[in-house]
Amino acid sequence: MKVVEINDVCKTYHDTEVEVKAVDGVTLSFEKGDFAVIVGPSGSGKTTLLNLIGGLDHPTAGEIIVAGHRLSELKPSQLIDFRMEHVGFVFQSYNLIPVLTAAENVEFIMNLQRWPKEKRKARTDEMLQSVGLSDRHKSRPSQLSGGQQQRVAVARALAPRPEFILADEPTANLDTKSAETLLDIMEKLNREEQMTFIFSTHDVRVMKRARRVITLEDGKVVSDIRTNHNS
């Protein structure tokens, strides 16, 4: 089943005198359960592409269909609701709400979606357990390490069971051990919850773990390789 379909999408920035084609005629699709990584040199358009898929930005041309929604047809306010309902985000940093505890952060989106309290609590416990932080419910983000913060962010993104998770360089600020732990957790959740992951990276450790590697250069897809290794 196709979760994301990208048809001949372009994104051009005009704000300097030169025109920058950040994404240039990309056609791709992602299946449910994909564990895909987008790689490429700096400035090749990885972040831009992820933002387009997540409905954070509009393409200049082409069409993106996510879970049956044509993103170009959604109004800005509908786009926010779309993101809340269908997309889980993990950013490189500044993921968490600093005044809330780890558990409250994980609950946050379920709260926005008005889940009943018991279900919310149960799911939060389950998610913190899966990311190995069941003893850190009450910790504030500032009391957690960078790796732990990213794990809370993954737990939060996954908790409301979105269509897929977008992660822009989730390991960029992590040491090797933390990065490995985070990847283990994402792989496990990919397996156990059939969750689709799409992320960008510079990190070879991440590339090795992916089952599909898409390479961008100057906004174009130059290769799309499925490796069938299972970890």
Binding site: G54, D81, M84, F91
Partner: peptide, 16 residues
């Protein structure tokens, strides 16, 4: 700025 951007990205709507 960043935090508010993150909140909007993960689905906190304008009214909220």
């Amino acid at each position: 700025t960043r935090e508010l951007g993150m909140l909007s990205a993960i689905g906190m709507n304008r009214r909220r």
